[in-house]
């Protein structure tokens, strides 16, 4: 569901960049921005599909309220992309429907 880029971030001198991976593609993004801002600025359309109707969804509020920006980050499903800063080496995937507890469990182990 790759589409045109909705947002872009102008390059600025001296800006520290980090590398993140989304669905197998690698991007360089400014350090400190949120995962949601990073993905929206790199042409990613839907972040997830809704649990009830399987409809495509993407960030709406960007301030931690709407839970539309849920993505899987480093194996942990359903994390709020707008509340999570990017980190070098982060691996992000779309969140298809409800999170799986098994994935939650294995993701939790990888984290520590």
């Amino acid at each position: 569901m790759t589409t045109e880029t909705l947002f872009s971030i102008p390059a600025s001198a001296g800006q520290k960049m980090v590398r993140i991976e989304f669905e197998g593609e690698t991007f360089q993004v400014p350090e400190g921005i949120s995962v949601a801002a990073a993905l929206l600025s790199n042409g990613r359309g839907a972040f997830r599909t809704s649990i009830v109707g399987g409809a495509p969804r993407a960030p709406y509020c960007m301030m931690g309220i709407c839970f539309e920006c849920l993505v899987e980050i480093d194996g942990i499903p359903a994390r709020q992309g707008c509340m999570t800063p990017v980190r070098n080496g982060m691996i992000i995937r779309r969140q298809p429907g409800a999170p799986s507890l098994k994935a939650l469990a294995s993701g939790g182990r990888n984290e520590h």
Binding site: I51, A78, G97, A98, P99, S100, L101, K102, L104
Partner: peptide, 8 residues
């Protein structure tokens, strides 16, 4: 009550 999870 938790969020919805895949059946387990």
């Amino acid at each position: 009550i938790t969020e919805r999870l895949k059946p387990f």
